[in-house]
Amino acid sequence: MMKKGNSDLKLLVVLTLFSAISGLLLALVNNVTKDRIEMVKVEKQKKALQEVVAPFDTVETQTLLNDALDPFEAFICKKQGNVTGIAVKLSSRLLSSDEMKKLNISEPFKQDQAYADSIKMLVGFSSDGKINGISILEHKETPGLGSNMKNKSFMDNYSNVPLDDKKWKVKKDGGDVEQLTAATITSRAVTSSVAKAIQIYKNQAKTLNLK
């Protein structure tokens, strides 16, 4: 009996020692890499913003909807203290009326959802009331159909257009946005999300006293 107790203890000691050593090694590597990993994240964010807003030196981030996986954020980009552009990060997911109220988007508002899951995007506006462009961050739309939303022909709908120049609905619904062939659902989802982003931008512009 004594012998078994001894060898069990030995097993436990060995395993604990192992875990301790590996824990230490991992702590070391983590220390060495964590700053770099953080920097990669910040770089990625900066690059994404640079695609849709005019050049800037500082960014102020505002969380509009606090969701762990799908936060809606506004990025206020300034150059030498003046606002050059605002980017809105949002997704096509269905918002509750409480959330719509929080975003200050007037109801009734027709929310169109994506074909699969939700489309996450970054919509860039310039401070003089134009939409600069959109950048699709994540999506699960059908490859070859909905995924064509990334093509230039569709993206041009939102490229450098004064906000009051277009009716922001797809042509099928009486608007001015050229929809994708055979991918009306995806087109509607993107257009509906951009319409939300436009409302958010207008609210921001009012608070910041822009044009």
């Binding site: 875990s19 590996s22 824990g23 991992l26 702590a27 590597v29 983590n30």
Partner: peptide, 12 residues
């Protein structure tokens, strides 16, 4: 604050 131990802890 040791989130990097996730893989190790989970598999054990």
């Amino acid at each position: 604050n040791v989130a990097y131990l996730q893989t190790l802890a989970f598999i054990l």
